[in-house]
Amino acid sequence: MTGIEWTEVTWNPVTGCDRISAGCDNCYALVMAKRLKAMGSAKYQADGDPRTSGPGFAVTMHPAALDIPRKWRTARLVFVNSMSDLFHAKVSEDFVRSVFQVMADTPQHTYQVLTKRPMRARRLAERGLVFPPNVWLGTSVENSATTHRIDELVKVPAAVRFLSCEPLLGPIDLDRFLLPESCPDGCACRYPDDAVAFDCPCTGACVGWSPNPAIGWVIVGGESGPNARPMHPDWVRDLRDECTAAGVPFFFKQWGGRTPKSAGRELDGRIWNQMPKAGATWTAA
Rank of each mutant, 00 (worst) to 15 (best):
R149G: 09
A42E: 10
F252R: 02
V135T: 09
V156Q: 14
P118A: 01
V156M: 10
P133F: 02
C206Y: 07
W72Y: 09
G128K: 07
D175V: 03
E5D: 15
V59E: 00
C183L: 03
F252N: 02
L86N: 04
D193S: 13
L239P: 05
Y191M: 12
F162H: 04
P213I: 10
P180S: 07
A29C: 02
A125H: 07
D199V: 07
C206T: 02
Q274A: 15
G48Y: 04
V80Q: 01
S21D: 14
N143G: 08
D49R: 03
P63W: 03
V91H: 03
E142C: 07
E93L: 02
D193Y: 12
W72K: 11
P55R: 05
S92V: 13
C183P: 05
M61E: 15
W255G: 13
C187A: 05
R123A: 02
V130T: 11
K37A: 12
D67I: 13
T10K: 05
T115L: 00
T106K: 08
P132E: 06
P276G: 05
I68T: 14
L66Q: 01
S92N: 09
V113H: 03
F87N: 03
A58S: 11
G264V: 06
N12F: 00
H109I: 00
G222M: 05
D193L: 01
Q254N: 06
Y111L: 00
R122N: 03
D94N: 15
W255I: 13
A278M: 11
L77A: 08
D193I: 07
S164P: 07
G56L: 11
F87R: 02
A280R: 13
T281C: 10
F57S: 05
